[in-house]
């Protein structure tokens, strides 16, 4: 019989402070919840809760500012990078980050993300790629795979009618403005640890005024993939990873130095 006395015991893991107390509204097994938790952990560790600003986008995470207990605001569909640009330029001490899905960033908001990167805006974008439109019920996203079912590609996505999936990191890493562009995943604990490292490095790049940082996170959407959560992770590994290889697509020298520092610290 062990005595469970949390208050006396050492905490190996606990819900980050930067997260509010009420539960997420996401579906069971949704990747957004994992990524929100990682962002909150990073903000706690970097001690920037008083400077952080959540620039929400439109999608399942439309109310993300309710889940973080620091300043936040809504932006119109696809426009979060522009909203964040203005906040950073008007109040450079703040640490705005956009949280966007694949519809928000890679469909309607393509121009905004490309130009925020091209200008090298000192903001951070966390881009959750689950290859589907979640909030509106499972339509095709720009990152929906060829042959993949969605409610708007009933027979599976055909290029003749619906074109090809977009690899955002590869595209944006050709621009000079970004300081750090990486693609990570949350399909298992080890991947989650790496995802957190990338998100933390992205925020540290912003804090060091090194330019735009973007982390694409491959994330499961069990409900709209029509796969229950545990199998959704397998589906992600089997189908998303080949199309969207993980890795750091752009790391300017100054960010590489930040990485070395963190290993020594």
């Amino acid at each position: 019989m062990t005595l469970d006395t949390p208050e006396l015991d050492t905490v190996l893991y606990h819900k980050p402070e930067a997260l509010e107390d009420y539960p997420f509204h996401f579906c069971p097994g949704c990747g957004h919840g994992i990524v929100f938790r990682l962002i909150a952990e990073v903000i706690d560790e970097l001690k920037i809760k008083e400077r952080a600003v959540c620039v929400a986008s439109i999608g399942c995470t439309v109310t993300s500012y309710h889940y973080f207990n620091f300043d936040g605001l809504e932006s119109a569909h696809g426009r979060a990078p522009a909203v964040a640009t203005a906040i950073k330029r008007c109040r450079p001490n703040l640490v705005p980050f956009t949280y966007q899905g694949d519809g928000d960033l890679a469909a309607i908001g393509t121009a905004e993300i490309v130009h925020a990167c091209a200008r090298g805006e000192n903001i951070t974008t966390i881009f959750a790629n689950n290859a589907i439109y979640g909030m509106t019920g499972g339509q095709m996203a720009p990152t929906t795979l060829l042959g993949m079912y969605s409610t708007s590609t009933p027979g599976g996505r055909q290029p003749s009618r619906a074109g090809y999936p977009i690899r955002v990191c590869e595209m944006l890493s050709t621009l000079d403005g970004p300081a750090y562009v990486a693609r990570v995943s949350v399909h298992n604990p080890a991947a989650v640890r790496k995802a957190k490292q990338a998100i933390k490095l992205a925020f540290r790049a912003q804090l060091a005024n090194l330019g735009m940082s973007l982390v694409e996170v491959l994330s499961p959407c069990p409900t709209n993939w029509r796969v229950e959560p545990v199998k959704a992770m397998d589906w992600l590994v089997e189908h998303l990873l080949p199309q969207y290889p993980l890795g750091e697509y752009k790391v300017i020298p100054a960010v590489a130095d930040l990485k070395k520092e963190s290993r020594r610290a």
């Binding site: 203005a86 008007c90 130009h115």
Partner: peptide, 26 residues
């Protein structure tokens, strides 16, 4: 002060939204 030539009027109005939200006259 802040000046940005934007990529479109859509970006301009969204930046205006952000600056106004940050409490700046814009």
């Amino acid at each position: 002060r802040v000046f940005v030539q934007t990529e479109s009027e859509l970006a301009a109005i969204s930046m205006l939204y952000g600056a106004a939200a940050a409490g700046c006259r814009a």
